[in-house]
Amino acid sequence: MVNEALFWIVAIITVTGSLSLLFARKGAHIAMSIVTVMCGLAAAYVGLGAPFLGVVQIVVYTGAVMMLFLFVLMLVGVDQRESLKETIKGQRWIALAGAGGIALLLISVIGRVTLYSPDEFTDGNPEEIALVLFSDYVLVIEVLAALLITAAVGALILTHVPRLVPKHSQVELAEARILAGADPVNKPMPGVYARHNALDVPALDPEGKPIEDSVSRVLEIRHQTQEGAEFRHQLADADNPDHDAQPSDAPPRDSHDRNPRQGKGESR
């Protein structure tokens, strides 16, 4: 007989895991839930006397198929959240009625039949499976091999993007950039001449003026830079020793109202 405890564990794991399909919002969460379901099913297979299939289930489904799903989720954007609001009129009710209906029908049929099940049962160990597979079903195996190869080639073709323009080498790219009028010299690093060795602070030229180009353009667009102006008075302090130098780690007062707060808000 099959182990009853195992059955209930498997049933709870698989049903709760699969309910995530209906209620979870993030693709990655769903995928991980399904991985759990697959593992539960593998346990069920072992419990039903099919250890070979249980192993194959783990290797193929949790190891390959679900990982492939995760890869694709990453490719199309793992951050996508899906709204569960239904857009097609009546679809939710039709779907629930259909699914419930099929479940009811199947269970009513299953509950009505009684099948003789033998107590002694030969486990589906790999030797016996192999014996059947490669004797009775050898032709099917061959056909499936062809199907797998075809599927692989088909996937390659479907995802292949033909190259429209010839590939450029790095040398060509560099030359094109120079021809377009770019500065051949590296831009100055940010903050290296300042007292803050930070990315969001522009470098200062020998006259003490900030060099705008030294800060990454991205930071500028996000308003996460600190202007070089606040360091002027530090320079002025250096020129006039009678003023006390402010602590270097304290942010200048005039920069408080804009940059750091905004930057914090944006970058979480």
Partner: peptide, 10 residues
């Protein structure tokens, strides 16, 4: 399709 399946099974 699912509704059709339900009808057929029914």
């Amino acid at each position: 399709m699912l509704v059709g399946l339900v009808i057929v099974v029914a």
